[in-house]
Design a protein around this nucleic acid. Structure first.
Lengths: 152, 152
DNA sequence: TACAGTCCGTGGACGCCATCGACCTCGCCC
DNA sequence: GGGCGAGGTCGATGGCGTCCACGGACTGTA
């Protein structure tokens, strides 16, 4: 994990569809060398996936909510987690310090669907209560912060 | 925006580095047709970007925090937003309903850096108070939910 | 019905890219 | 000094991206 690896990671966080040839030009190596480095970053768990980032409204997911979860005393956290994992609307799941054990980011199409989701969460065994905040708008999301020492 | 477009979006959310030829095979069109469709999805604002998803710990960003922001009465929300935009540690920024106008997701390397960030936020003009919760672990993040009617 | 225009696709062509293997160079250890 | 491994370059080849010309389906008009 040297400076070139960091530069590759930055480049791919900015545009995951860059060709190996283009990456090679940017970092000053040959394409096969870049190919090998990126392969190692993938298999070494540094790069988890390549994803297209989509404007949620355009695919019918216009409602974003952040939901705090308080667990029952004596709830099995792993079971709760597994239940959450089975709910596709939950895009992100953080295990938190504080009264609320989890913070979920969920995305649905309508307020009615959000209501159904909240009901479902409250019925989940191990969940004592939920606290939902609606995002009126997303200013930005998952902006990558540069990590390489500024690629010249 | 028909079923084929949705299938393409789903495929690219799952793996942004799929070749046009592979996409074409999956949706049953020719590569040039897919190329054109994806181009329109990009220029039409449906696909915003292609990003490599990185394990944050591996690039020295092991601390994740969610920070609620209460604005001063009379604060200029746009100015506050602009100030936030200039802070690279803030990866996501939601404008919320409720007492806290903003919810920020920030990522830093150490608790000391988080402290500095919180101080900086509290000093930002227009910010009345902040409330920080630390994520002990990220169970998952930005999991794409399928939107196409299950690609066969 | 006939016709023209538009949209959206296909197939072919061509140059670039991904990827493999052979080889080279450097640093390290015995 | 000599062997070895990591990590690079170079060259070849097959597949891919991308441009272009062409063709069928649908629509509105006479």
């Amino acid at each position: 994990m040297d400076a070139i690896d960091l530069a590759l990671v930055d480049l791919l966080r900015g545009n995951a569809r860059l060709s190996y040839a283009e990456l090679a030009r940017q970092v000053g190596l040959s394409a096969p060398a870049v190919h090998e480095r990126v392969g190692k970053l993938e298999s070494g768990g540094v790069i988890r996936a390549y994803r297209a980032e989509v404007e949620p409204e355009t695919i019918g997911l216009g409602v974003t909510a952040l939901i705090g979860i308080v667990e029952d005393s004596g709830a099995d956290t792993d079971d709760v987690l597994e239940a959450f994992r089975g709910i596709p609307e939950i895009e992100s799941c953080y295990f938190m310090a504080g009264v609320e054990s989890f913070l979920l980011k969920a995305r649905v199409g309508t307020i009615a669907e959000l209501e159904q989701l909240i009901v479902r969460l409250n019925r989940t065994p191990g969940v004592a209560s939920t606290r939902t905040s609606i995002a009126l708008s997303t200013k930005w999301e998952n902006r990558p912060q540069a990590v390489a020492p500024t690629s010249s």
